[in-house]
Design a protein around this nucleic acid. Sequence first.
DNA 1: GCGACAG
DNA 2: ATCTTGTCGC
Length: 231
Amino acid sequence: MIIPGGVDPETIERLKREQIELSKKLQLKDIRPVQDIRYVAGVDVTFTDIWKKETVAIACITVIDIKDNFKEVETVFSEREIDFPYIPTFLAYRELPPVLDAYEKIRSEVDAFIIDGMGILHPRKMGIASHFGVITGEISVGCGKSKLVGQFEEPENKNLSYRPVYIDGEKRGYILRTKKNTKPIFVSPGNNISVDSSLELVIKCLNGYKLPEPTRKAHNRLQEYRRKKYA
DNA sequence: GCGACAG
DNA sequence: ATCTTGTCGC
């Protein structure tokens, strides 16, 4: 039986078990002091033909030197046809393949990766940022624009106000308001970094906008790449 | 049973 | 995520 636009229940269960297995490889302590992190890569993915089941995913990774006025060091792209649909808590199975393609193209030095989406702020601690971090062994942080799971109190309406986000009473990340009168973002460790250091790193990557500069730059580069290719 | 649900 | 310009408010 084929489910249009979906995935069979057996596959879902298999992927769940895979996430649980991968989560055993998580390392949530700092392998490096945050103050030593200089080259931070922003990772983002966009799509074309999203109304069809088989769409083209375009991934972008932009490396930013946060110790030299947020200078753009390198930017790489990668395209790939995708068939796996968007299913909450299984985002990695849709977006990670193109991201890994782009990852292989990077030639410059990178200290840490900030990825759109969640890290361990996920039911099985395997958001796309954690999945990426466990597979590559890199330092990774998840930075999402909306909530997936977790309990928290609303941060005050002022710049750099934040609150911890819990799952089963365990602190898994932070909700952070990066600007006054702006919707807060969700930060959590992907791999090889702690919950608190993840927040610290994202704050150091802010450059006056809602999103951290690496993420913002990758997103902007993607938009111009996509519309240029169509026109 | 009902609502929630990254991109 | 994507389709899309201007517009209202802090």
